[in-house]
């Protein structure tokens, strides 16, 4: 079934098409949810809410852009709604002592996707949120500031700290491996 047929079917509330759409995209979107959620249960809840929104609002999809991109945006927005701003605004994590020096790019090549996911999940909520939005999804600091209601400067500083923390954890992983 093509993407167009799938969308048309979902517009008609065809249950089979909806199930197929879920089957096709839920795997990738679950990963997105996991990156934003605090735990697996929350990730599944976000995924569920996001797909309900997708089915309810599929008529609003304009066939100009990527359908997967549209779905991803809904998933991310749903995940962001799950956060309360207070949960990470005042987070203070002691990462100032982490060296500034960038890691060798080859180091990342040795890491599996599961390990990368685990590293992200170990980040504090605020850092994880900004890192996900900036590094993985590709949003700008201005967009991130608008999306989650923080200052651009806060977004920048959270990103720097998130990177430092990730590098620190990657170094630790390397040490364990050696």
């Amino acid at each position: 079934m093509t993407e167009k047929e799938l969308i048309k079917g979902c517009l008609r509330e065809n249950r089979k098409c909806q199930q197929e759409l879920f089957r096709r995209y839920a795997g990738k979107m679950l990963v997105v949810c996991q990156r934003y959620a605090r735990h697996q249960m929350e990730a599944e809840d976000i995924l569920q809410d996001a797909f309900i929104k997708i089915f309810d609002n599929i008529s609003k999809f304009e066939s100009k852009g990527s359908f997967e991109g549209w779905i991803r945006r809904i998933v991310i927005n749903t995940a962001l709604k799950n956060y309360s701003k207070k949960s990470f605004k005042n987070e203070q994590i002691g990462v100032e002592h982490v060296p500034e020096k960038a890691l060798e790019p080859s180091i990342y090549g040795h890491l599996h996707e599961e390990e990368l996911m685990n590293l992200i999940l170990q980040l504090p909520d605020g850092y994880r949120l900004v890192f996900n939005l900036y590094a993985v999804e590709g949003y700008s600091h201005r967009e991130i500031a608008d999306m989650i209601g923080i200052q651009e400067s806060t977004s920048r500083s959270q990103l720097v700290k998130a990177r430092k923390l990730l590098q620190q954890k990657i170094i630790e992983l390397q040490k364990v491996a050696v």
Partner: peptide
């Protein structure tokens, strides 16, 4: 940033089996 690039590229097509 190499960290951003590594995470972005490796996780872009990463998928899990949804329950």
């Amino acid at each position: 940033h190499p960290t951003d690039k590594a995470f972005s590229e490796r996780l872009e097509h990463y998928s899990l089996e949804p329950p």
